[in-house]
Amino acid sequence: MSRTLLIAEHDGKQLNPSTAKALTGALAVGHPVDIAVFAADAGPVAEQAASLEGADKVLKVERAENEHPLAATLAPQIEALAADYSHVFMPSTTFGKDVMPRAAALLGSPQVSDIMEVLDAHSFKRPIYANNVIVTVKAPSDTVVTGTIRTASFKDAPAGGQAEITDKSLDVELPGHSRFVELEVHKSDRPDLQSAQRVVSGGRGVGNKENFEIIYRIADKLGAGVGASRAAVDAGFVPNDMQVGQTGKIVAPELYMCFGISGAIQHVTGIKDAGTIVAVNKDPDAPIFEIADIGLVGDLFEIIPELEEKLG
């Protein structure tokens, strides 16, 4: 039985863009791919998943406990579903990183994290050491293959599909030891970092929270998503969900512009898939210039206003 299961990521209403990218990675294995939607009411999200080209079937797994995704309750359900599959994947987002290893352990499967390339049904490439090394790994053929798919490495599966949607009920007992309390979402009308075509980031060099306005302004001018370095997050300039890098988000925009970021390896890891990297830093020796396609030495507080003006 060669069949792949992809677990959809969503917020109860909207399918997360990571799912469309992970689908492309899952399809590269070469088997039919079904998408499972775990939710209390999976209807709207299942419709969106069904419209992705390449999805074979969409399984709705509805129960009250699935209203908020918790690893402890999802993992045993994934384990039960996996009986019909040779491969089980999730996107390599905080959702997939939390849930997949728990399911993999229940399945006795050594998980492949952050798949960046599919070589064949069992061989994959993945980054290690903060993306400074790429390793090829081969999953055993006598257990189900489990993995998370690095979204920055794959393009969105296009819309236009018409997968069949079916209900799936699972007879699995779920533990009561884990409870969702709340989710504090930082609302933003700006493009989502991980799918934006343009991203503008600020680092410690921006100085403080008030100054960060200048970054938002230039981002809005460019229609860009906004990111930040860890130092900017730690200093409280911006919330944690804006962090780009090894322990933040991996971004792959056409254009990445960073201001007042030194270029630590942990940050650079998160931007290597960008099309064009522009760096503005007042230190001509900042390591960011070693990887930036276009560097400009100078004070960001002088350069950004000028840039705004010249962009018209």
Partner: peptide, 23 residues
């Protein structure tokens, strides 16, 4: 069960670009 670890390779180098002098 474990993953068989194969070759290690450096990531494709990003060709460090150049600096420009003005906006």
């Amino acid at each position: 069960a474990k993953l068989e670890v194969g070759t290690h390779e450096p990531p494709p180098e990003r060709k460090g670009g150049h600096k420009v002098e003005s906006v």
